[in-house]
Design a protein around this nucleic acid. Structure first.
Lengths: 232, 232
DNA sequence: ACCTGAACACCGTTCAAGT
DNA sequence: ACCTGAACACCGTTCAAGT
């Protein structure tokens, strides 16, 4: 039985809903067809194949991210407000953002925010490379924060728990530090503090970094943690 | 024909090699069996199933990350060296790190680095919550940077290219800024500058953030970018 | 122009059976 | 204790055929 009414938009909407709800893995062509009440093969006519369907969702996410408007007064606050807006936008659609990321469209997605940052950097008196540095540093900061933050939220019960990790002597006789690290961080506070410190540091001094790797990391050689075969 | 020599370690090694080379999607049970020269079902005896095989790889990655040793003199440099070491370690095994991330083991993976940061924060005179803030801010910074950095590297040709994006009037009559943003950033320099700014900002002042979302983001409502059905 | 079912080559997993 | 092939229920995709 022909349906004759299915549109590309309908397909994208239903696919986006599935991805938002269950992640990319929750989007199967057969499941999508069932949700739409069509045959699987109809979807192929509208969107090509699964890969280009996901590509289209990523494109739509880039467009959805829209324009950023700085708020507040003073460069630190206004620049911080862009970082906050970015964080919120990313957190509202984590799966879709991850797909944008995987497809290498991150730069384009951040363009509106970066345009706003350029204006604020100028207003703060930064020019040329210093301004570019601020734009990129703040963007990286916000994105990285969201990624780590999401991980914390999804994380199952950690073994060992943070209390154990930081309870003993690891904090070096600083009970307040131990308590602070044992408790789950206040994400809003930590983000605000990080952004503020970064922006103040960037606005304050000319950065004269001494690059290069000055620290080693020990590779323990791949010893397995758990052992013992599984029983049937 | 019985093989009688397959071990769990062998399975994990071969699986890790496949993931390093082709990512998690490149690891199929049948492909792994072929690489090992065994029947698919033998793998199940040793590692249970695909999911717990990936879990084991993530565990191994956490263990492999090993200990961090700060280098250099002065708090800014020593704290920065931890960030650099972290960045390097993460960049060496991006797929495996992503798997650790997906499984919520990120915190455990970062514990060695965070222990080192605690010591350096103390040496710099920070205590309690201020020290905890530095530990977390620096960790988030390094992780986030690597994630964004990798994205840039994998990104296909951007459309529009950065030259177009920043070439016109977007940079607000700052040709040096336009040039800086049009050129690909020097990742080592930008990372060093960001970490330095963050650490200096954290060491300098007590942070009194004004939290809350003070900026809106405009949602354009999900209009599609490309259109037109695919041909058979 | 748009929809359909049948068929193909994959995939992870289970199971009864070997030695 | 460890390995095996057969079988199951999935998956994305193609194709010839409908209207």
């Amino acid at each position: 039985m022909a349906r004759q009414t299915l549109s590309r938009e309908e397909v994208l909407d239903a696919a986006a809903a599935l991805v938002r709800a269950h992640g990319p893995d929750g989007l199967t062509m057969r499941g999508l067809a069932a949700a739409l009440g069509t045959a699987v093969t109809s979807i192929y006519w509208h969107v090509g194949n699964r890969e280009s369907l996901l590509d289209a969702l990523a494109e739509r996410t880039v467009a959805d991210l829209g324009a950023i408007r700085p708020r507040g007064e003073g460069p630190v606050e206004r620049i911080g407000s862009v970082a906050h807006a970015l964080r919120r936008a990313l957190r509202e659609r984590p799966h879709l953002v991850a797909m944008v990321h995987e497809r290498g469209l991150t730069e384009r997605m951040f363009l509106p925010a970066q345009r706003a940052l350029v204006r604020e950097a100028h207003a703060a008196g930064l020019r040329g490379e210093r301004a570019a540095e601020l734009v990129r540093a703040v963007t990286f900061q916000a994105v990285g924060y969201v990624l780590v933050e999401r991980n914390r939220e999804r994380a199952p019960v950690q073994s060992p728990a943070e209390e154990e990790l930081w309870g003993a002597g690891a904090a070096g006789a600083d009970p307040l530090l131990a308590r602070a690290l044992a408790a789950p961080p206040d994400p809003d506070r930590l983000f605000a503090a990080s952004v503020r410190a970064l922006v103040e540091g960037l606005l304050a001094g000319p950065s004269t970094p001494s690059p290069g790797d000055i620290t080693d990391i020990q590779d323990s050689g791949g010893g397995a943690v758990g052992r013992g075969p599984y029983s049937q």
